[in-house]
Amino acid sequence: MNRIAQGLVLVLLGAAALSSTVVSDLYLNYVQAYFRPFLAASGAVLVLLGVWVVVAEVRAAARTHGDHGPIPSEDDAHDHCNAPGVSWLLLAPVVAVFVIAPPALGSFTASQSSSPEPTAPRADSDDSGRYDDALAETDPATPAKLELQEFVLRAWTDEEREMAGRPIELTGFVVPNEQGEGWYLARLQMACCAADAVVNRVLITNTEAPEKDSWWTVRGTWVEPEGELQSVRDHRFSVDTMTEVDNPPDPYE
């Protein structure tokens, strides 16, 4: 790989970063939204650096020929201009973005990932900000729109059981339950990037499982556990109505 090729690779890498952040929302499949300005800035720097490398190399070649200096041998050019062959692997991210465009994590990851177990606040702590206000601000007769993360947190830690008997609306994708009855409505939660994603899910047993990885908005009620929960897999939801929806631009919570 000579210097001009190196510069072009940098341009392609920068263009991949820019196309995923400025032109589209593809970056949301891999990282949190707050990374957008950093990725866009990195892409711009890579493009400018690549262009500078190409222009500098072309000008250097033009000066050499203009001065009628000695033309370097192939061995000299190889020693001074070429990078190791392994550097071509830098094109892999470009191919992944422009050709493959890997989708967001889905049912396979959700079935393999661990589920976080929310920790109840200490008795002496101020827990007034533990939840969003969606449940409190919604009329008891109207379905409250909750994220699966909040639903799981409430099911674990809300000693007042405010969700009991309340109509609730959840949105997520379908994960088959390979180990038993029913299916899971799930949503992946990530702190930074897709590599640290964990799953929030509820088990649904009163309806047939839709197609795997399809997205649905379900309305129904929380099935209160009869005894103490042993794991987050025990959360159950009774569905009254279901509506298939398009994949959201940001699939993570």
Rank of each mutant, 00 (worst) to 15 (best):
M1G: 09
M1A: 11
R3D: 02
R3T: 09
A5W: 10
V9K: 05
L13V: 10
G14C: 01
A15K: 02
S19P: 00
S20D: 05
S20V: 04
V23Y: 07
V23I: 13
S24E: 04
L26S: 11
Q32N: 14
A33K: 14
A33D: 13
Y34S: 14
Y34Q: 13
F35P: 02
F35H: 09
F35Q: 03
R36K: 15
R36I: 01
V45P: 05
L46W: 08
L46V: 05
L49G: 11
G50M: 01
V51L: 15
W52A: 15
V53L: 12
A56F: 02
E57V: 04
V58Y: 10
R59T: 07
A60C: 04
A60S: 13
A62V: 09
R63A: 14
H65D: 09
H65S: 13
D67K: 12
D67I: 05
H68D: 07
H68F: 10
H68I: 01
G69W: 06
I71Q: 13
E74K: 13
D75C: 04
D76S: 10
H78L: 13
D79F: 08
H80K: 10
C81M: 12
S87P: 00
L90D: 03
L91M: 11
L91F: 09
A92F: 12
V94M: 01
V94L: 03
I100L: 13
P102V: 08
L105N: 03
G106D: 02
F108L: 12
T109F: 11
A110G: 02
S111G: 14
Q112Y: 07
Q112S: 12
E117N: 11
R122T: 09
D124R: 05
S125Y: 09
S128R: 15
G129R: 10
G129S: 07
Y131K: 04
Y131V: 06
A141H: 14
T142P: 00
T142W: 04
T142C: 02
L146K: 08
Q149A: 14
Q149T: 14
E150T: 15
E150V: 09
F151S: 01
V152Q: 08
R154N: 01
A155H: 07
A155Y: 07
D158I: 01
D158H: 05
R161D: 13
R161T: 10
E162I: 06
E162P: 04
M163A: 12
M163V: 12
G165R: 11
G165F: 06
I168G: 01
L170S: 06
L170V: 06
F173A: 08
F173R: 06
V174Y: 00
V174E: 00
P176R: 06
N177S: 04
E178N: 10
E178A: 15
Q179H: 13
Q179S: 14
G180K: 11
G182Y: 00
G182V: 02
W183H: 06
M190W: 00
M190S: 03
V199M: 01
N200T: 08
R201Y: 03
V202N: 01
N206Y: 03
E208Q: 10
A209T: 10
G220P: 00
V223M: 05
E224V: 10
P225R: 07
P225Q: 05
G227K: 04
E228H: 09
E228T: 15
E228S: 11
S231Y: 02
V232Q: 14
V232T: 14
F237T: 02
F237K: 05
S238P: 00
T241Q: 11
E244G: 02
E244Q: 15
D246Q: 12
N247S: 14
P249L: 11
D250R: 06
P251T: 03
E253S: 15
E253F: 09
